[in-house]
Design a protein around this nucleic acid. Structure first.
Lengths: 195, 195, 195, 195
DNA sequence: CATGAATGAGATTTCATTCAT
DNA sequence: AATGAATGAAATCTCATTCAT
């Protein structure tokens, strides 16, 4: 039960870190601000995480795990359906997570290309892998053309990101996840007029 | 001729800043490192740019202008061709620029999601606009389906970004610009098998 | 009791600032030197005062308040006496304070004539006011001729300052406060021989 | 004739320095600002004065010489008159100079107590001496009581300074020099009512 | 364990001075 | 001799981290 409490505090700090990051940015977010958001003193943060980098890494890991779990859930739940439905379910799960943890996604692309990109790239590996699983299914089932299949994961993730950034400009609308059908359709059928 | 010199120095500092940013990251890049890369003393940097923020803003502006010019060139040069060719030319120009100025593109997504995204968003407005022009042509000519046309610019930019990040993982290949045909095809025809 | 500590530290830093200012001058006094004099690290100084200007302003305010309190004390304690006695008490209090906080008085005249004089002038307003109160009493009681009464505060303060600077040249003597009787006499009776 | 030109330039730089000092303060006045006020480049200033300290010292010396000359003139011209007239003439000359070269007088009391006060004190020696000459005459002629005669120079200078600072507050009036008669009267007869 | 004041290395910025043109 | 861009030492300020309470 002590462990329960420790874990709850740790989670609160991670949430505070995410919030602070979202508000002030990866670089500008100071440890004191994170602690204040969590309602604890700086020293307490250091009782849970060795240093700033560890805290950020832990946040990254926690959010990645959540995202991977969501994607795995989507992959499993839709396994029996047609590929288009699977894809839409998967993309909806992805977009919903991006929307809920915008700060996490900001982190994934931020940081120094040298260090953080290595970070982020490594961190994304597992996510990337789920997209590859999905694409593999599509190709195997004949639903996807194998021609440029090695690019599909990157293109799908990129389009999701494109939609995310678009949300910053057009400040209305039904939210990111509602774009999943359109995204699915454009990816499968293309934007070109059928001749 | 003195102005020539001043401008050349300013450009050299901007290039050095981009290089340093690429090597060390937006936050880690110190003014001294930038100055050293440019082959001048710190004080000299401050003779050209009021402070760190101004230098970064100037770099942002300079690269954006270069990119917009490249996109305008692509839009103009391919105007007479079929839309697919226009699209490919445009995407190739975009990808080539991203490749040449990776540091610039790293900057566009870095920083605080709140502020810098506003920044980046504002900074990208002109770029976004060129994608809209292109998409507008496609819809007008009947080459693009108007269904989700409002999402196309975001999706195209996103896919380019997806490919860019992919370059960080697969460290071989013919470079980003060579992906333009594949990207064009996937965007126009979709990844789905033709039934 | 924590607040007690904080206040004591703040006072220690102010004292250290005054000392450092006295030793090295308004411009030459570095924040590190002030911190060292106070026996703390630079960062600690910044935990108490936002920046250099704030620290100096706080010192100014603290010393002014002390001086004003001393003058108010003198005004109150001597209220019942004859004007000459009141004047002497008042001047003695003033001179004693100037002597004790020479650094403070150095500050009052230092800085940019434009801005800092505005500063100093504003800062001195309260002090000036006490002299005006005193002069007002003198005029009201008939002890002072009203002819040039509007100049008296300035003349009295000026004479005190003159004596202060004189201390820098003649380095002996019983201290500034001991000049109060002479100053009182000259001001009241003049230096001219009685015809 | 070349020397004439050199001297004229040097004087222009000194004037510019005084002006800049008056506007921005002793510490804040940068060499570039001084050069700009003089209409020359920084390098040129260094062709005339070895460094910043030399320039300030030269300004000090120049202004002091002017003041001393004016005081000597007043002492000589009024030698035959009654002491009260001599005093008024002298004070008027002093106040006029202070008014014309406010920046110079700001310098005299400014600076680090350590260095600049030494400076200023030394610089004032000659001026102080003229006040002593005047007071000596007054005592010798029986016009001044000898009681606190050693304080009179300091008191007179102080009163002048008090009036100068007063000018900063009351921003109207006929100028500093017009206060000479009042100052003379108060100093000779005192502010006390004649019983 | 929690606290938050103290720490000090390190970053940004200024500006007197130099020197090639 | 005049110029003004370049220089870099030195000052201010920040903030991750420590540790006594």
């Amino acid at each position: 039960m002590k462990d329960r409490f420790r874990e709850a505090t740790a989670r609160a700090i991670l949430d505070a870190a995410e919030k602070t990051l979202a508000e002030e940015g990866l670089q500008a977010a100071r440890m004191e601000a994170i602690a204040a958001h969590a309602g604890v003193a700086v020293g307490t943060v250091y009782n849970y995480f060795a240093d700033r980098a560890s805290l950020l890494a832990a946040l990254l890991a926690a959010r990645r795990e959540g995202l991977v779990a969501a994607l795995d859930g989507a992959l499993a739940s839709a396994e029996a359906e047609a590929f288009a439905a699977q894809l839409e379910t998967f993309l909806r799960a992805f977009l919903a997570h991006v929307e809920a943890h915008r700060a996490f996604f900001a982190m994934l692309v931020e940081g120094d290309p040298g260090k953080a990109h290595g970070h982020a790239t490594g961190a994304l590996d597992a996510v990337y892998g789920r997209f590859e699983v999905l694409v593999g299914r599509g190709v195997a089932s004949g639903a996807l053309r194998p021609a440029h299949a090695e690019l599909y994961p990157a293109l799908l993730i990129g389009m999701c990101r494109g939609l995310t950034l678009r949300e910053f400009r057009v400040r209305r609308g039904a939210g990111l996840a509602s774009k999943a059908p359109a995204l699915t359709q454009v990816f499968l059928d293309g934007a070109g007029a059928t001749k």
